[in-house]
Design a protein around this nucleic acid. Structure first.
Lengths: 183, 183
DNA sequence: GTCTATACGCCGATAGAC
DNA sequence: GTCTATCGGCGTATAGAC
């Protein structure tokens, strides 16, 4: 028998993953309940058993964002290369769980979803604080914007996923730039 | 009498402006034909007289983008402070005509509108070329990403418009950062 | 827990009056 | 040139069978 903690049926996670994937690959408009259900391999009715409505699905996605982000902030604070270098390197699209929720959430923020916008603003503040501790308060924003720009470009390319080949090569130039800004 | 060049009725421009405003302030999903028509002060049928369908409206918006962008590239190339400093300063949201079409177009690119994505990629290349001529090939991308990050943040804030007050003060730090990267 | 069937509103677009 | 009326389709959500 499963313990009392063993909830979260597989179907539920599959639905959430499908929602995330569609947001990333095809944008918010394509992430309809129908499309999500199809990709997750359930019916629309089945989907709506797990999530009473679309807002509920978004809310759980944002929980996932919070959780993965908290882990990443710990890693960033403890990074041997320093928070700034860690941040830049992790701003390249690498299809990690955090990359995925982050981009998915960005798609929601872009269509003016208020709660998502609030969360994303909070994320930026957290990153900024750690960057300021590493490279100083005045250079923190330049570094933050460099990382954000990386994401922005990856997303415009034509949705991430297709790893813009040139990008990986740019990271070292960015890390080098960060070193010059340090102090 | 107006000369042969005097086309473009006011209503047509009003519709385009309304479309742009809605994209900026409320995102792509809110920029429906109904909403655009209402904001422009015409009926849906009236709107569809000027633009046979929504794609046509997007196409004309992209023409506006191209036109304003070409002007800005000229100014950037000729800027006394250098292309990089000009670029960073102009990446701050200032509600200029170019800022507005650019953000509006970004909203369309975000929902995976193919043609818009192509145009935006072209824009990035043009900027990159001018930046490379100013700060050198390796530091061009760090500068480009800084500017893009500025836009990204302004858009996440909660749609641009509400000028994130702190931002204006950050510009000098960014310009200073660019100076450090020069070489 | 998962499905089918269905209600209902909104979106894009057409037809045709004025 | 601008309007009203209307259609087909899709997207969210509900009801209820299995």
């Amino acid at each position: 028998m499963m313990g009392a903690m063993a909830r979260k049926p597989v179907a539920r996670e599959a639905v959430l993953d499908a929602f995330e994937s569609l947001l990333i690959a095809e944008g918010e408009r394509a992430a309809t309940l129908d499309a999500v259900a199809r990709l997750a391999g359930v019916s629309k009715g089945g989907l709506l058993y797990h999530f009473p409505n679309k807002e509920a699905m978004i809310a759980v996605l944002l929980e996932r964002l919070d959780r993965l982000l908290a882990e990443d902030l710990d890693a960033m604070a403890a990074a041997p290369e320093g928070a700034a270098a860690y941040f830049i390197r992790s701003s390249v699209w690498a299809d990690t769980p955090l990359d995925r929720v982050f981009v998915a959430a960005t798609r929601l923020a872009e269509v003016a979803h208020a709660e998502t916008q609030r969360r994303m603003a909070g994320v930026q503040e957290s990153w900024l604080a750690l960057l300021a501790a590493d490279v100083g308060p005045t250079m923190a924003k330049p570094v933050l914007y460099m990382g954000d720009g990386l994401y922005f470009n990856a997303m415009l390319a034509r949705g991430p996923g297709e790893t813009t080949v040139g990008l990986a090569g740019d990271v070292e130039a960015l890390v080098a730039a960060v070193e010059r800004l340090r102090g």
